[in-house]
């Protein structure tokens, strides 16, 4: 009785997700195959001869600016319109920069400036972590007049 019942389960029911767990391998494969068949039957395509487009090695480009490396069209001379003059430098340098870019990476901050900046930074951060007693030293260093380290305070034995 029980076996008969199992075979009578409909295919649509078996295809549902919660039924998949209980299925054995064979029926699973069967179902999958059927599904594939349905999909391939329903898949439609244009019944045309295969279009063979060879890869083209000629590219069309209708712009003269690209061919002749033309300059930017706005110009100003002798300070008539400083805004445009700035723009002109920027836009026209773009073309030239592309060639030289790799060789000279423009620095916003020179190495020397950087070193100087970090020099003072060492001081300020150092001050933060210094103890109260040492802080005096830092302040002196900032002011420029470096005093010789004071003799360390220590217990002096009283003389008899």
């Amino acid at each position: 009785m029980a076996a008969e019942h199992k075979t009578k389960l409909s295919k649509n029911l078996l295809r549902m997700k919660f039924m998949q767990r209980g299925l054995d391998l064979e029926t699973k494969q069967q179902l999958e195959e059927e599904e594939k068949k349905i999909i391939s039957e329903e898949h439609w395509y244009l019944d045309l001869p295969e279009l063979k487009e060879k890869e083209s090695f000629i590219i069309e480009e209708q712009s003269f600016s690209f061919c002749e490396d033309l300059l930017y069209g706005r110009m100003s001379f002798r300070g008539f319109n400083p805004e445009v003059e700035k723009l002109m430098l920027q836009m026209n340098s773009k073309n030239k920069a592309k060639e030289v870019e790799d060789e000279t990476v423009e620095l916003d901050v020179s190495d020397e400036e950087m070193a100087k900046r970090y020099e003072t930074l060492v001081g300020t951060i150092g001050k933060k972590f210094a103890k109260k007693r040492d802080r005096a030293n830092y302040e002196e260093a900032e002011n420029g007049n470096i005093k010789p380290n004071k003799a360390k305070k220590m217990f002096l034995k009283p003389q008899d």
């Binding site: 033309l70 300059l71 002798r78 008539f80």
Partner: peptide, 19 residues
């Protein structure tokens, strides 16, 4: 507009101008 155009450079020396 050619990159090595002398005309524009010469014109630019004449007066302050915008083109």
């Amino acid at each position: 507009l050619a990159p090595d155009c002398e005309i524009i450079q010469e014109v630019g020396k004449l007066y302050p101008l915008e083109i």
